[in-house]
Simulated assay, not measured.
Amino acid sequence: MGLRKFGPFGRLKKAFGQAVGIIAVSVALATAPSVAEANSKYAGIVVDAKTGKVLYANNANARRYPASTTKIMTLYVLFEELEAGRVSLNTKMKVSRYAAGRPPTKLGLRVGGSLRVKDAIYALITKSANDASTVIAEHISGSEKAFGRRMTQTARAIGMRNTTFRNPHGLPNSKQVTTAADLALLGRAIQDRFPKYYKYFNTRSYTYAGRRMGNHNKLLGRVRGVDGIKTGYTNASGFNLVTNVKRDNRQIVAVVLGGRTGKSVMRRW
């Protein structure tokens, strides 16, 4: 997924590169021409990560489909398990027939095999592997359905009032919804609570079973200060991005949901 496919993301990249500093992100978004009118799926928010101050918002509390940004919460719950000592990075999780059968993007795990927790973390962050997400869910809660309840309970504890999870990967489910504001809150919470594990989101590539997996977040390594965190896409959601930027003693979390693809969209920006 190149940056050219993300209408508002191109604005983010341009803003990040300006000498006026990191706060220019909010200006670039706010001055984008008729964003909401141009795309009914669009929602966005820019938040000061340290204070929680909203620097920009458009449809920030409108419900949207999270797609693979769902995996931020999947990892949040996994990090809880690591912190509590119920799993370790070397814990091997069993691969069920159901998990192996999840549709792409996936690792291609074998039924009856196993997946280490550490490999699962990298698989979600880089390749956004759906089969690995289900392996995590089944290991922790026994099923995707039960894990979805755990995810939603965790969301409420964080303060995500308008988010409901049904699965750990973000594959289409009409009842799995979130908002830009809630995802910004999650983006702040996961790095505040788990700084030891948050660093994994800065991984540009990872090799598993001899195959190199590149991170879908193309801002990494291209925009100074970006250290994660997650992209997502389904037909229903459009292109989604939650990203964190640290620069010049400032830090923001920016969320763009419903990005559109194609040259016609780029001309609008």
Rank of each mutant, 00 (worst) to 15 (best):
S34Q: 15
S68T: 01
A62R: 15
Y65Q: 09
N61V: 02
G44Y: 03
D48V: 05
Y42E: 08
P33I: 08
S34E: 13
S68R: 00
A60T: 09
I45L: 13
P33V: 08
A38K: 15
A57E: 15
N58T: 07
N61L: 10
K53G: 01
V35N: 02
V54A: 06
T51H: 02
N58E: 15
N39Q: 14
V46M: 06
A32S: 10
A60Y: 05
K50F: 03
A49Y: 06
S40Q: 14
K53Q: 12
N39T: 13
K53E: 14
K50H: 09
Y56S: 08
A43G: 15
V47L: 02
A36Q: 09
N39A: 13
A49H: 06
R63A: 07
P66Q: 05
N58Y: 06
A43M: 10
E37S: 14
L55N: 02
V35P: 12
E37P: 04
G44L: 03
V46Q: 04
A49R: 12
N59S: 14
N61K: 14
S34I: 08
G52L: 06
I45V: 15
N61F: 01
R64S: 11
S34P: 01
I45K: 08
V47K: 08
T51Y: 02
D48M: 07
E37R: 14
A43T: 12
A43C: 09
A38F: 11
P66D: 00
S34Y: 11
A43L: 13
E37N: 14
A32E: 09
T51Q: 05
A36D: 14
K53T: 13
Y65A: 04
S40L: 08
A62T: 10
S34L: 10
K50M: 07
G52Q: 08
V54R: 06
G52E: 10
N58Q: 15
E37M: 11
N59Y: 10
A62G: 09
Y56V: 00
T51M: 03
